[in-house]
Amino acid sequence: KVVGKYGNGTRLSISRSGNTILLNGKKAGDKVYLTTGNSAPAFAVKGNRYRGQMKLIPSAWGSGVTVVNAVPMELYLQSVVPAEAVPSWKADALKAQAVAARTYAMYHKNGYRSSGYDVTDDTRSQVYSGVSSETEATSRAVRETAGEIVTYGGKPIDALFHSSGGGYTENSENVWGSVIPYLRGVKESYVGNPWTKTIPLSSFVRTMSNYGYGVGSLKGIKLSRLRIGEAHRTSDRGISGRVKTFTLIGKGGSRTVPGDKLQSIYGLDSTLYDLNVKGSNLIITGYGYGHGLGLSQWGAEAMAEKQGNGRDYYKTILTHYYSGTKVEKMY
């Protein structure tokens, strides 16, 4: 039933009493939809404007209210693509991002069902901020790929993407521990500039000891050399060269450290790195940004710059990064 009608510019205070939603202090029900009946951006929440409907429900945790933007897929993507890619990129790179984002959303539909929504608006799912991020170039990429998704065996894939592969993407088992047939490491032409982090050795040894990797006075670090853009066959690195483990050797023995543990401790951009001791410092030199699985966004742009603007080249980009897949129009 309709519990209220409000004019343009009305400011609504949303609160909760038990499992009942209150609008400006008035009881409205345990699930309330705010709607205008058109696709214009009608609602503003915490400074962002949104299309579609607003669903108000009691939070699944605590005593608050969860505000859900219920919006059609294609309008959702008009905000996601410019938030995840650079709007000035080549059209094929933007189209590849649009299809990947659509596929990811379709695969993760009902991902937060117990909380009342499909996906979050941050990097746990995909970045989404409503109308404010929309651009003409990215909206065009969404429109021109409408309904297209990446499939493997006829089903939508978990279309993971990351900022930069640093010259080579990674096999899923070296990041997640399980083999996903379409998330295979592939070579890419984009490497990007290296990043570095310098840590005093005394601080490094102390920190590693605090995390359970104490070896006493450090004698050496065992890690095979990184070769950018080459498939690696060593046990301490993944196929891309991302560090699986390295070993600290000291007077008190040796300890094997997971590569992503060092990334977590020091906030490294990726696990595609080398370790070098220079004087009294440890120098970490790395490449890429993100987990290294699936589509490399800067790699996609490099492919589009080099070969783009051909007929449907974005599909070539997608099937390069997602092994054994197809791009299909599902609706």
Rank of each mutant, 00 (worst) to 15 (best):
Tyr6Trp: 08
Arg233Thr: 09
Gln97Gly: 06
Arg124Phe: 06
Pro41Ile: 04
Gly192Asn: 11
Gln97Pro: 04
Lys244Leu: 10
Ser172Ala: 12
Gly290Lys: 01
Asp312Lys: 07
Tyr321Ile: 09
Lys251Cys: 06
Ala93Glu: 12
Lys26Gln: 13
Met73Tyr: 11
Leu23Thr: 03
Asp122His: 04
Thr169Ser: 15
Ser189Ile: 12
Arg102Pro: 05
Lys27His: 11
Gly212Phe: 06
Trp61Val: 09
Leu295Arg: 05
Asn110Met: 14
Ser133Tyr: 04
Asp269Gly: 00
Thr325Ala: 11
Val86Glu: 03
Gly154Leu: 01
Pro82Phe: 01
Ser209Val: 08
Leu293Cys: 06
Gly299Lys: 09
Asp92Ala: 06
Ala231Gly: 11
Met54Ala: 14
Val119Trp: 07
Lys329Tyr: 08
Leu75Val: 05
Gly130Ile: 01
Gly47Ser: 09
Leu275Pro: 13
Ser280Met: 12
Ser217Ile: 00
Ala137Phe: 09
Gln126Thr: 04
Val186Trp: 03
Gln126Tyr: 01
Pro82Lys: 02
Gly299Trp: 05
Pro156Arg: 07
Val81His: 02
Pro156Ser: 07
Ala28His: 04
Glu144Gly: 09
Gly212Ile: 07
Lys187Gln: 13
Leu272Ser: 06
His162Glu: 07
Ser15Asp: 15
Gly52Asn: 09
Leu75Glu: 11
Val179Thr: 13
Ala159Gln: 02
Ser129Pro: 03
Val150Ile: 13
Gly4Gln: 04
Tyr331Gln: 13
Ala159His: 02
Ile14Leu: 15
Val243Ile: 00
Glu305Phe: 03
Glu170Cys: 12
Leu248Gly: 02
Ser217Leu: 00
Glu144Ser: 14
Gly130Glu: 05
Leu293Asp: 06
Thr234Trp: 03
Gly324Pro: 14
Thr103Gly: 10
Thr207Met: 12
Thr316Tyr: 02
Thr135Pro: 01
Tyr322Ala: 13
Val175Ala: 00
Arg16Ser: 11
Glu301Asp: 10
Ser202Leu: 06
Lys306Tyr: 05
Leu318Asn: 06
Thr145Val: 11
Lys187His: 10
Ser178Thr: 13
Gly267Ala: 05
Gly279Glu: 14
Asn24Gly: 12
Gly253Asn: 08
Gly192Cys: 10
Thr271Met: 11
Asn210Asp: 15
Thr247Trp: 03
Val131Lys: 05
Asn193Cys: 02
Val45Tyr: 13
Arg227Val: 15
Ile57Asn: 08
Leu218Asp: 08
Leu226Thr: 02
Leu12Arg: 15
